[in-house]
Design a protein around this nucleic acid. Structure first.
Lengths: 281, 281
DNA sequence: CGGGGATTTGACACATATCAAGAGCGGTGG
DNA sequence: CCACCGCTCTTGATATGTGTCAAATCCCCG
């Protein structure tokens, strides 16, 4: 049923966890694994904690929860109680305005943390939805804070993860605020590639779990624009594209797209150049 | 790993930091006020802490530092040691790409916290610069974490402030990703107004500390566009404008600008509506 | 008081949105 | 099994919002 070959390693490896087949209802179960022996510990909450400290995380009484494709992990306005770390699968987070506009604020994959938006007001401010059948670890926030108060390395690691989220968001602002469509798409693909690589997956070929529209929402573009740019990159030989499967064929060229700010500069002449120099210095 | 001892030495090094040079140099002084008696405590770090706990914050050995207009509080790449809370004045934070593009990621005013970007990697990822002569409280982060480990209410309050920053950033993403120029400007003005109001300042009339270009960078617009929209809003009577001084004359109308998404919605019909419903469910 | 940056405004260019049509695909039910 | 349906994606033609370039004024700061 799932498409053939290569990228299945992305999904299969984590599907050892039992998935509730019958009901459309999310399944909650007692966690069978401890953080200290989890294969994701290198990039999840325990990252950076050593020896005894990392064992301390096992104190937390947490559950696994499976979320079906298309189902919500949580919605804006619901009370905040727990953080979630993605065990397997793929999520999107998005905000909705009163007038119904939807803005995707991020895509989350294995090892990434979700739910930080709820801490401020004790209720969630955004929505998080599974883009494929997924499994998360549910971490009761009160317990985490309690434990963090006693384990400095955990506390610090948690702060680092929040800080990382802030830095990530600022990167998105940069992308949305000052990049052209083609740059945004290139940055998006490279970012995904990098994150897959960090997880030991193929970094040059992967499945896009989200639609063109969701990509567009994330990048501040319309779906048609995303599609057109995909086509263009494909024709230029920078990427290979088969439906949702992407192959990055020329990483250097993709990175180069990020560099060039001032368009092809066709109408440029010496005068022009001087102006630009003067303006930027 | 971070002991109190290192924390002290961190602070010491702050004192010893090469803050030489006469005239245009930032000034550092021992803080004359305690958090528990600070007039900003309602909206600063101590916010939400009660009685004895709020006194605990006084344990932190922190300094005041004055930053001249145009001077940097910190720059990207410099080592992270302390957080800062704005005591008075106004700042902008901004990121810079390799190719020199600058993206303003936020404006900070009294009671707001700055520096959270540095926690992740122990070095700052963005730049922060004073838009007017300003004063900040310097909070050595190691000390803060140490104290937070012993004072749960402080720990929780700090987590709330980080979460707030994340939520704020997501609001900016929404603004940059799915709003029109006029909406962005309106949202910007209303946001400033609200923050001034929360501080007991006039919320309908205030000075813009930043240039049109900085506003544009923040909003993902060019300075000319910002200027044009200011003019338009003025001509419509929604705002009064005199150089950097703004008066919000019609809050309701400004808020209304945020509501209308789909232009005049001319081509809409019932079919369309059905599609939308189906799509969102 | 002078000079350079900030702002405004206009004319025009261009990137991206909008509208529209069709193709491909997956699921569903006869 | 095929036919149908809805959704996603692609592609083209066109519209439009915002950027770009330019020039004049203003005025803040030294």
């Amino acid at each position: 049923m799932r498409s053939t070959a290569t990228a299945q390693s992305l999904t299969e490896s984590h599907f050892a966890a039992p998935i509730n087949r019958h009901a459309r209802v999310d399944n909650i179960e007692r966690c069978p694994t401890l953080c200290s022996s989890c294969n994701l510990k290198e990039m999840c909450l325990p990252c950076g904690m050593k020896g005894a400290d990392s064992k301390a995380l096992d104190e937390i009484f947490y559950n696994r929860r499976t979320i079906k494709r298309g189902a919500s992990l949580y919605r804006a306005g619901t009370p905040f109680q727990s953080l979630f770390t993605v065990r397997s699968g793929f999520f999107k987070s998005y905000a909705v305005t009163e007038d119904g506009r939807e803005q995707v604020t991020g895509f989350q994959m294995a090892g990434e943390i979700v739910g930080l938006d709820g801490i401020e007001t004790d209720s969630h401010s955004i929505n998080v939805e599974a883009l494929e059948d997924s499994v998360v670890c549910v971490i009761p926030f009160a317990q985490l804070e309690n434990l963090a108060g006693r384990v400095p390395s955990l506390q610090h690691q948690f702060h680092r993860m929040m800080s990382r989220e802030i830095v990530r968001d600022q990167g998105v602002m940069m992308l949305l605020g000052s990049m052209h469509a083609e740059e945004r798409v290139a940055a998006f693909l490279l970012n995904l590639s990098q994150r897959f690589a960090a997880r030991g997956y193929a970094s040059a070929e992967f499945m896009l779990r989200m639609t063109r529209e969701e990509i567009g929402s994330y990048l501040g573009l319309k779906l048609e624009t995303v599609s057109r740019i995909f086509s263009k990159l494909q024709q230029s030989g920078l990427i290979g594209l088969d439906k949702k499967r992407v192959r990055l064929l020329d990483l250097a060229a993709l990175r180069a797209i990020l560099g060039r700010t001032c368009k092809p500069m066709r109408h440029i002449d010496i005068h022009h150049h001087d102006n630009i120099k003067a303006a930027t210095l």
